[in-house]
Design a protein around this nucleic acid. Structure first.
Length: 586
DNA sequence: AAACACGGCGCG
DNA sequence: AAAGCGCGCCGTGTTT
């Protein structure tokens, strides 16, 4: 296939809104480049069309962006199914996950000494202008030269990276799955998640009232007009004026920390603490909800930017706005939550399904530890935290009432994780809440029963020291500093879970489009969860269709433990999710 | 005015 | 000697 490096220039980054492409450049792998400016160059439109309709494979750095810009201009989103492409940014992320930014210019400079000063002239020109992101105002000859350099950089990277991926079957598979996720993600962004402007405005109104009340209370306690948003002012109030104890210091500057966990400890020492917590939560809530409203289009839909490989572990990330951290109610240790999920709702005529992998973290820990008893428990769909609970608490658990059982199981569950992430006997004994001697004894009993689980951290840690990386079951390498072995287990679990969710999405996308004629579709991935929109008129078929989605999500034969999902449905808002049963219990 | 570092905090 | 980590985004305060 004919390989062509391709790069677009746009008036800005808001491609789902006001911005558009105004130019593009292309070159072959030898670096022979051409630049076209739409509306200036004869034949630009035709050249663009031939790039997308011909028998070509486009190579881009951040291909999602160039595809969005191009298909928006061509007004032909069906091309997503047909176009073949490469992405040098993804190649870099797979081969060197720990690179700090994967920027085109930096990579070419670092890998090949390709000078990166060619943009300076452009910035000089932009300096006097107030529309910073609008490159279409840069003099055309300068711009042409700059664009040529960029596609040539892309060619350089492809020639450097791609052979390394191509010659390793596992890397090839990972790369293929990453590329497969791109069109699926563009379709999600295009749909967008809906907010209710009225509800948002109401919420902001309430939050403003509560913020001002908290501000007034704090100023009253301070006895002077301070800014509650200023950490310096709060520090002065808490630790000088009121003389409260310093429980923690900040990492870089060693100042008295005023973080939430500190404030929660000091909560019963003075009534101003709660007012500070309220002020922080409510004022943050206002700016967050405002930003949601600002990002929404006329319909009320927010089209975020989903980065399919945004984290060093391979996780996805989300920005402008980040819809992966919409705050929710009912969180332990958050006394004044913002009910932001109430303003997110299904499109008219739709419901949302929220499908999350149940207990995927513990399942993968058991898989990687190869702990036989727990593998067996998972295979018969048992409670994976119960054996640990019994090992830690024994008869104390058996003889407890229902409420007490819940508490003990919760503590044991915590310690199951803690042990895997490297907690020592002392920490575990402490976490069990039973006195050190007894706790230490129970820890050693636990260790005898689940030796593999207890050894996991050490095993991975020494692998990190030796190899400077870990590999997920799929074969994705995740590099980390050799002296940071304690992070290995976390990277392994996070990276594997990410890959599972990422591989399930294109399958689901293809299936839903076929089964519902493009009516149902994914809206958002949230690390171990997918939000899906689904037409109300097809709800009768939902048990079957969601059942098939479930099957696609858990179909991974390479693990020694089974996967499972929980499904919830929301009709009115993301704050009102109800369990959804695939079929009536028989 | 813009860019940066920092602490802080929401989610997973 | 050690329960861990990943993001994006905000306001303050400082530097350029």
């Amino acid at each position: 296939m004919n390989l062509v490096c391709y790069d677009t220039e746009t008036t800005g980054l808001d491609l789902w809104g006001k911005d558009r492409m105004f130019s593009f450049s292309a070159c072959d792998l030898e670096g022979k480049a051409e630049v076209y400016r739409l509306g200036r160059d004869e034949g630009a439109e035709e050249a663009l069309r031939s790039l997308f309709n011909g028998d070509r494979s486009l190579i881009c750095h951040n291909v999602k962006f160039d595809l969005k810009a191009s298909l928006k201009h061509l007004q032909d989103w069906d091309l997503l199914d047909r176009i073949s492409f490469h992405d040098t940014s993804l190649q870099s992320k797979i081969l060197m996950n720990n690179h700090p930014n994967h920027k085109l210019k930096n990579l070419c400079f670092e890998l090949a000494g390709f000078p990166k000063d060619d943009e300076e002239a452009i910035w000089k020109v932009m300096k006097g202008r107030n529309t910073m992101e609008d490159f279409s105002r840069v003099p055309e000859d300068l711009m042409d030269e700059y664009q040529k350099r960029d596609v040539q950089r892309c060619a350089l990277l492809h020639r450097f990276f791609y052979p390394k991926i191509e010659r390793d079957a596992r890397l090839r598979d990972i790369y293929r799955s990453e590329l497969d996720l791109i069109p699926t993600t563009i379709r999600m962004e295009r749909r967008g998640s809906m907010i209710d402007f009225g509800k948002a405005a109401e919420l902001i109104f309430d939050l403003e009232t509560w913020t001002e009340q908290a501000r007034a209370a704090i100023i009253f306690e301070a006895g002077k007009d301070i800014n509650p948003a200023s950490q310096d002012h709060i520090r002065e109030l808490l630790f000088n004026k009121l003389g409260l104890p310093v429980l923690k210091r900040t990492a870089k500057e060693g100042k008295e920390s005023t973080s939430k966990d500190v404030l929660l400890e000091l909560r019963d020492k003075h009534r101003v603490i709660d007012e500070i917590l309220k002020f922080r939560s409510f004022s943050r809530g206002i700016t967050t909800i405002r930003s949601y409203m600002d990002f929404a289009d006329e319909e009320g839909a927010i089209h975020p930017d989903i980065n399919t490989c945004g984290a060093i572990t391979g996780r996805e990330s989300c920005s402008k706005p980040n819809l992966q951290n919409v705050s929710k109610e009912g969180v332990l240790l958050n006394p004044f939550p913002i009910p932001a999920r109430r303003i997110f709702r299904p499109r008219p005529g739709m419901v949302n399904f929220h499908i999350d992998y149940s207990g995927i973290e513990m399942r993968l820990l058991v898989h990687y530890a190869r702990e036989p008893e727990l593998i067996e428990v998972l295979n018969r769909d048992g409670d994976v935290h119960l054996p640990g609970t019994l090992a830690f608490y024994g008869d104390e658990y058996r003889g407890a009432d229902k409420e007490r059982k819940k508490v003990l199981r919760g503590a044991a569950k915590n310690m199951n994780f803690a042990v895997c992430y490297g907690a020592g006997p002392k920490k575990v004994a402490e976490g069990l809440g039973m006195g050190v001697n007894k706790g230490l004894k129970r820890y050693s009993q636990y260790k005898e029963r689940f030796p593999k689980l207890v050894e996991l951290n050490g095993t991975i840690s020494s692998r990190v020291r030796k190899e400077g990386q870990i590999k997920t079951t799929f074969g994705r390498p995740i590099k980390l500093p050799r002296n940071m072995g304690y992070m290995g287990v976390n990277y392994l679990i996070q990276g594997t879970a990410a890959e599972i969710l990422k591989r399930s999405q294109p399958r689901i996308d293809r299936y839903l489009r076929k089964a519902t004629g493009d009516e149902a579709g994914i809206l958002l991935p949230i690390h171990d969860e997918l939000v899906i929109e689904y037409p109300i008129k097809m709800l009768r078929d939902a048990p079957e269709i969601l059942g098939n989605v479930r099957d696609l999500m858990i179909d991974f034969s390479i693990f020694s433990v089974p996967l499972e999902v929980d499904i919830e449905i929301s009709l009115n808002s993301w704050a009102e999710k109800k369990p959804y049963k695939l079929r009536l219990a028989s």
